[in-house]
Design a protein around this nucleic acid. Structure first.
Length: 432
DNA sequence: ATGGGTCAG
DNA sequence: CTTTCTGACCCAT
């Protein structure tokens, strides 16, 4: 065994992510937003979840409630938009497709982030990073930053650095930075800035005197494993340059699907809850069908607001399904098992269902005795099709189908058009 | 096994 | 007047 020579080039990982993704996606299709403060709001237009740099400069915090912002929006020239997930999904797909051309080894990590396996001399890696950044900006219209390092954890850290320090021009190759500068950075930043460390772990690490990233990177991995977990130990090793978190294959199947939402107006009756559960039952059916899956278990749950300590209630039921199914009638009926646990008069702020124990739809014909007539007539597909063509709420089982929307539906008063996925919402260009 | 806790984006 | 929603995984029981 020869010692790895310092000249030897280790495999590198590039981490690419879009700057303030939702706001940038909105800008990509409405250039008039360029240079203006923009916030994208959470479901129900509750709070700001993404802010353009101009909005951040105004002091608008992450999670700031819209009702506090609204009075000053005009004076600021602030543009607020409801979350438009169709648009973001479409922009995301374009970014990922483009990145895929630069490496055969692409892991789509989230809607706006990807890891790429890359190799080459440091100068080449920097050029590659700049090339990808420019290509995404030019072809999709959104800004990205790139961090490149020997491990995923360091690549994410390098990316964060690139984003905050203009000197990098959006691309940071960790190993190209002088060691003294890297240590200075790690000494400045709290462990909470590291991927995989949040508030709880931060508290526990601080209690041991481990406050900065530098502290953590110098900790003994075995001690960390014993006092925390192998997960935190991997983080330490990755900070030290030893790759422990592998690139992952694209996940084909999911282990579970969740349909859950906070309500614009609380639900106070079992009748109202019945409607909601019916909608979720159908959504679950459609999604299962889309992925060619059936569920064996359905869990339905509801909950009061965490803001109201009075009259709290968190009912949930777990229903084993008699056979694996994606049938909307069976799923909806199972979800209704929650209804007896709903207390009239209590304000439920959210509800949802979760389907688990998923398996691929078998191609073997079920015994006629157990075959569900609705499945045979492809009602799930029909519902999905109608929903797609005429919008959610245009058709449904029982009380689920209500045009105009009952008052618990999500509030999205400031939705941008779905330019890229709906023909009737294409932007109009006026010729002079 | 499974339910609670933690984390991510 | 709010603190997304969805998913994974570790760990204790």
């Amino acid at each position: 065994m020869s010692k790895p020579s310092p000249m030897r080039r280790m495999p590198q990982i590039a981490h690419v992510d879009v700057n303030c993704f939702y706001a940038s996606a909105e800008r990509a299709f409405d250039p008039s937003l360029e240079g203006r403060p923009v916030v994208v709001l959470s479901n129900n237009d509750g709070c700001a979840v993404t802010r353009s740099p101009e909005a951040k400069a105004l002091g608008i915090g992450l999670g700031e409630p819209w009702f506090k912002l609204a009075p000053r929006a005009k004076e600021w020239g602030l543009v607020a938009l409801s979350s438009n997930y169709e648009l973001y999904g479409d922009i995301s797909a374009r970014v990922m497709e483009l990145l895929g051309r630069y490496s055969a080894w692409l892991e789509v990590y989230s809607i706006d982030e990807a890891f790429l396996g890359v190799k080459g001399a440091p100068e080449d890696l920097l050029i590659l990073g700049q090339t990808m950044k420019a290509a995404v900006r030019r072809n999709v219209g959104v800004p990205v930053c790139v961090g490149i390092a020997g491990t995923k954890t360091l690549a994410k850290l390098a990316n964060k650095w690139a984003k905050h320090n203009p000197a990098f021009d959006g691309v940071c190759h960790w190993d190209s930075v002088p060691a003294g500068d890297r240590e200075a950075l790690m000494g400045r930043l709290s462990v909470i800035e590291i991927w995989g460390v949040a508030t709880r772990l931060t508290k526990r690490l601080n209690a041991l005197g481990l406050r900065s990233i530098l502290d953590l990177s110098r900790a003994d991995p075995v001690m960390i494993r014993d006092r925390f977990s192998v997960v935190v130990m991997r983080t330490v090793l990755e900070l030290q340059g030893t790759p422990c978190i592998p690139m992952e294959e694209e996940r084909i199947g999911r282990d579970q699907l969740i349909f859950s939402r906070s309500f614009a107006t609380p639900i106070t009756t079992a009748a109202g809850m019945r409607q909601v559960l019916s909608v979720y039952g159908q959504q679950a059916s459609a999604r299962l069908a889309k992925h060619g899956l059936q569920a064996k278990v359905l869990t339905a749950f509801a909950g009061t607001s965490h803001f109201n300590p009075n009259d709290t209630s968190y009912p949930s039921v777990c229903v084993p399904l008699p056979m694996p199914t994606a049938d909307p009638v069976l799923l909806t009926r199972a979800a209704h098992a929650l209804l007896p646990h709903i207390q009239e008069g209590i304000k439920y702020a959210r509800a949802g269902i979760m389907v688990t124990d998923l398996r691929p739809t078998g191609n073997q014909a079920p015994l006629a005795l157990f075959q569900n007539p609705h499945e045979e007539r492809h009602i799930g597909t029909l519902l999905e099709d109608v929903t797609r063509r005429y919008g959610r709420g245009s058709i449904g089982l029982g009380h689920a189908g209500i045009r105009g929307g009952p008052d618990w539906t999500m509030k999205r008063d400031m939705l941008s058009p779905r330019y890229t996925t709906h023909w009737d919402e294409l932007p109009l260009v006026k010729a002079a």
